[in-house]
Design a protein around this nucleic acid. Structure first.
Lengths: 158, 158
DNA sequence: TTGATATCATTTGCATACGAATGAATTTGA
DNA sequence: TCAAATTCATTCGTATGCAAATGATATCAA
């Protein structure tokens, strides 16, 4: 058989077939959201291996309180990227363990002030060096140069 | 006053003071875990804005089932980085909505096979283009070049 | 001043996420 | 072969994480 006429139909069919892999071929493992979730999971796991009795959000609350001192619950939440409902649970648990204490704002009666207790302060100061190790271990798969680039780009995303 | 004797005590004191900022100055906002958590939060929020009736883990389960076909619940879990307890909840909810169906493995009676229903398959195929948009929007703060670098480094971390 | 808005906190409901314990079924190895 | 170890799935308990509704208080504006 020699040359055969190529109809518009054939061309269309060919194009559709060529598009098909692009259309259906969705690689979950390459999507940023999926990998972000896995990287976060890995970090939480490293954190737990070093600090067994606090979660990352709990430590974040303590570290931020250590940094800024007394604040309202909501204000603290916005400093550590937690909504009101979430921060309440975290603070409740820290309070139950004696690491923070709560008091009412004298002037604005809506506000609930949060403070580190002496024990909470000791805990943060003891844990900060360990937290640095956790950061290091999390970034360990990257060279120093790569880690610096990664942190810059990650910050742009967050 | 002219030159004063400098004791070993003074030098030590000076060193301790110099270390202090390094010791206590822990910048939560610069720690990889904290930013990773925020980046993940942002992604979930973008996802929810585009796909209101499924969560990222639910979509991950559907997309992976679409990719690999029938698998056991645990196997699916390992493919999408979910432990057995978590994947069970996700699959239960997808089943309740008619997007997946379950059956027993003929040979290995321990296994629970998971499959897309016709409705589930339609849903995934409809959503995949939207999921691509979500990936794009998540990476939008980065240039194409930066995004490529970021994905390479993120994959190393996860 | 007072009525509308906004802010702070709480509660409820739902959805991951994971450790630990348990039970059923399968595989391994002595 | 058969006891030990492993795998698959379920359940329980605890901890984020967020939307939505609610109540109390504060601020703003007409």
């Amino acid at each position: 058989m020699g040359r055969t006429a190529v109809s518009a139909e054939d061309v269309k069919l060919k194009l559709v077939e060529a598009e098909e892999p692009d259309e259906h071929d969705y690689r979950l493992q390459e999507q940023v959201g999926f990998i972000l979730r896995k990287a976060h999971q890995r970090h939480v796991s490293i954190f737990a291996a070093h600090i067994a009795d606090l979660t990352p959000p709990q430590f974040a609350a303590l570290a931020k309180l250590h940094d800024v001192g007394e604040t309202s619950q909501n204000q603290l939440g916005s400093l550590i990227a937690m909504d009101a409902a979430t921060v309440k649970g975290v603070i409740d648990r820290l309070k139950a363990r004696g690491l923070v204490e709560l008091s009412k704002h004298e002037v604005d009666k809506r506000r609930l002030l949060v403070n580190l207790t002496a024990e909470g302060r000791n805990a943060v100061e003891r844990l900060i060096p360990i937290a640095r190790d956790i950061t290091q271990e999390t970034l360990a798969p990257l060279s120093a140069r790569e880690a610096a680039i990664f942190m810059r780009l990650l910050a742009k995303l967050a």
